[in-house]
Structure formats: C-alpha cells, structure tokens
Nucleic acid binder design. Sequence first.
DNA 1: TATCAGGGCCTAG
DNA 2: CTAGGCCCTGAT
Length: 273
Amino acid sequence: MLVTITDDFDLKKIAASGQCFRVKEFEDGLFRFITGNHILYIKKCEEQLYEISCSSTEWEEIWFYYFHLDRSYEEVRGRIGVRDKYLRKASEEGRGIRILKQDPWEMVITFIISQQKTIPSIKSCVEALCLNYGDKITTAYEEIYTFPTAEQLCPATIEELREYKLGYRAPYISDATHKISSSKVDLQDLYTRSDKKVFETLKQISGVGDKVSNCICLFAYGRTRLAPVDTWIKKVIEKEYKGKNPFPRYKDAAGIMQQYIFYYALTHKKELA
DNA sequence: TATCAGGGCCTAG
DNA sequence: CTAGGCCCTGAT
C-alpha cells in the first residue's frame, strides 16, 4: 500500500545516520527495516509518496512512531539560530534524518557493543548475534533473523559470546542480559519515567556509561533532550564550538541537532583532521 | 608489517 | 579527577 509523508524523510540518510545497524538497502531504493519481529520494506515512489509492505494498521501503530512522524523536523530545523552556521549547514545536509524509536533491549545490547568499534564492525557483531540466537523469518525478499530476546540470549556463556568478536564486551552483554531478563532493570517501566531516571537506571548495567546510556535514551526512548557526546561530536565541539557544547540550548530538540552534526561529521571526516 | 583509532567503560591511584 | 588498559577490526 501507499503512504504519504510530508515532513523531512530520507531513507538513505536514515540508514547511514549511525543509529540503526540492521537496515538493508536493496536495488532500486528499496529499504528494509526490522524491529522486534516486525519487518518493513519501503520504497519512495514519488515526492512524499512511499510504497510500504505492511498494512495500514501496522503502519499507524508501529512504523509511524518508529520513524518519529508525530513530530515536525521542519519545525526543528527552523529553530537553528542564524549564528550557528555549522549546525545550519549540517541540518541542510542531514535534512531527512529521523530519530528512530527502536527497541530498548536491542539498543542496550547494540550500544554496549558499539564502544571502541567502527560502524561496520558493530553491524557484523549484531548480525552474528541475530544469526546465532534469533529466529529465522522468510520474507518475499530474503531470509532474515530477528534480534534475539533476552531469554534467547540468556543461555550464551561469556566464552561463547567472545567467539563473536565481542572482546571485553562479552561480560557486559551477559550482565545486561541477566539484569534485564530478571527485571532487575525493567526496560518497559522506563517508558513512563523522567529522562534522568531512565539515564541513571540504564547505567546500572555494567558496560553502560554516560555515552551509551544517552544513546539508548535517545534512540529507544525518544528522549530528544539528550545529546550523546561521542568521539566525533567531541572533535566537532572542540574545532567548531571552541569547546562549548552547543546542544543544551536546543532543549527538547538537542538530540535531533546532535544527529545532524554526527551525520555531517561522519560524511566529512577529512575536514575534522 | 606496524601502528592507530573506532558512536567508551572500568579500575586504580 | 585522570591515566591506562582493554578485545578486536579495518584503515593507512
């Protein structure tokens, strides 16, 4: 079926924005997204018109929120001050990026893996976990494995996890798996808690520090007041903002601004050297 | 071949 | 509070 999307929306940029590691691009601009056991194939037909593989109900109940379409990013871009030239440029190039509302459990594991890894390396680790512990689903286009649930990952020993190139993160993943499957850390409960509560609770998991916790808050719980500072953002803050973090002033749009800059930094690595 | 850094975190001092 | 160490990969 077809859906109309009038706000900023660019599948290629979303896929390359470094927040989702399982999106796949096929020929002819067809993209596949997966969250939990829901899979979406989506393709742009013409301006603001997209062909999607799911029902209108699934679109309205899941994917609409997944893509954060209940918020106007055009309005967000309009808030950028004229003096903030770097962000203006970044937001122009990054126009179309969305902050995805992904599964919290999946984000916990994924961003624990992300530390001290490159994006391609993160992707291959995540795929390895899916292939070995997830469920196989066959669609019209491919065979694909779901991200394993905490219960599916529980039996994996630390030694076993290390076989998937997880290195020193293996015990972190084990800790996260057990704390979450035993509800010592209740991910569901966090949906209704304050930003600070979510941020602090997630840090109870070993291997989750400020940066990883911020990423989970932003990419799973949609806490756009939070702007993760990673090595790239750090470089930009030093070089372009004289060491002063530019995000807090954007309040509930800080996380979106951060993502424009992250994307811009990634695609202009040379200029940061 | 050797070195370096990657969407950091933890521990020791 | 800061300095090192850490598993492993891909880039140079």
